[in-house]
């Protein structure tokens, strides 16, 4: 854990807190509507399919998926200066095996070895006392 983490952090509120609490336990969970059998990501107040919230639960995912698309960040913008020391780095849109897609970093490899379709698995980075970020490594 870095002593002074200087990058943008999410705001934790009642809607998003369960996600971040599970991340702290190194579990990847997302909302799931038992009525619709639908995963929901990012966190929502009601199921986008049935419009209700009475069957929504936080279900665990395998943490495995494939890269659907990705970018290599080459320059920072004003409000994210702290990322400049990482450049170039990869943000991928990962399609989890259960269906939902999540944006995250691919860590542990150079951007040159990344392609669409690559298999990846979640790894957890404890960046502050409150926040653990779900990142991904190649399988």
């Amino acid at each position: 854990m870095e002593s002074k983490y200087d990058r943008p952090l999410p705001e934790i509120n009642s809607l998003t807190a369960p996600f971040w609490e599970y991340c702290k336990k190194h579990e990847l969970r997302m909302q799931f509507c038992r009525r619709c059998k639908e995963w929901i990501w990012y966190p929502k107040a009601i199921c986008p399919k049935c419009g209700k919230n009475d069957q929504m639960v936080w279900e665990r995912l395998s943490g495995k998926g494939s890269i659907y698309s990705y970018t290599v960040i080459r320059q920072v913008i004003d409000n994210s200066e702290s990322f400049s020391k990482d450049i170039p780095f990869v943000i991928a849109l990962i399609e989890l095996d259960e269906g939902p897609r999540i944006y995250s970093n691919i860590v542990g490899v150079s951007y040159e070895s990344i392609s669409i379709g690559d298999r990846v698995e979640v790894v957890f980075e404890d960046v502050t006392n409150e926040i653990t970020l779900p990142k991904f490594k190649k399988l």
Binding site: P8, P10, Y42, I91
Partner: peptide
């Protein structure tokens, strides 16, 4: 969604 689920990963 940008602030909470994109920018922490460096979305610019």
């Amino acid at each position: 969604y940008e602030a909470d689920f994109q920018k922490p990963f460096g979305m610019m």
